[in-house]
Amino acid sequence: MNEQDLKSMIENILTEMTDNSKKEDNSPAAVTASDSVESTESDEILDDITEIDLRKQFLVPHPHDREGYLKMKSFTPARLGMWRCGSRYKTASVLRFRADHAAAQDAVFSDVNPEIPKSMGFVMTQTTCKTKDEYLTRPDHGRKFSDDMAEKIRTNTEKSPKIQMVVGDGLSSAAIEANVREIIPAIKQGLKVYGLDFDEKNVIYVKYCRVGAEDHIGEITNADVVCLLVGERPGLVTAKSMSAYIAYKPTMGMPEARRTVVSNIHDGGLPAVEAGAYIAELLDKMVRLKKSGIDLKAVENETK
């Protein structure tokens, strides 16, 4: 459904409602109209308003320069040109805003479908957080594993690998569900170009994961490079954005400057497979230069 259809649909509903209330008592025509509204129950499903591309949705009725406005809109995901009804947003805009906000909330509060990491053969782990509430209110608990869990990681992964891959839910389950099946094989394929590899059954999946969890994993596995793919805090533009936090020999409490980040991995940003290919090259660089974060940049600038 395009914006025009949606607009006319909403307009029809609104006029029908006002007409009915006005004429209810004295006009038989109105009664039949209201009857027909009640009786037409159809199996049709309303079109999904989140399908509308916001960059192309333009509700200003008589724009001075439609093309120019649309061109400006093409550069930003901001909700420009949504027009108004009196002093308020139009119904379509309000519904869309609430839908996007709900998607962001859902991404935070729902869990990653456990079948996805399981089916990929990952080692299933959880930080010391017991519940979502604890995870959200106690970031420090999301950076540590219990001794039992640490033991599980130790026994199920290779010792001192060159590369330890980690996938964590972070603040968006939707990001992991959308991207992880695409990015893992892309990283694997890319690493082969550089003579590196990892095995899916050594990839650690972390529930209730904060970025710092990779530091604990670095200490447990003694890996050269730890690469954590984690769901980012969702916004209204996308709930599916994932990042990779990569560090050479991470240790708990190390400065954040030692992490290299690849962010904005989602279908409207950096495509997951292309991000995977880029991450593979980064991993090779870190294994070779034994550095990450600002230190890596410094070495690169020196050798230039």
């Binding site: 394929q189 082969k192 497979v273 593979a280």
Partner: peptide, 14 residues
């Protein structure tokens, strides 16, 4: 045209 050359290149390499 679209942003996918690095992944595609890696796949070609293989």
């Amino acid at each position: 045209h679209e942003d996918m050359a690095k992944a595609l290149g890696h796949s070609l390499f293989a």
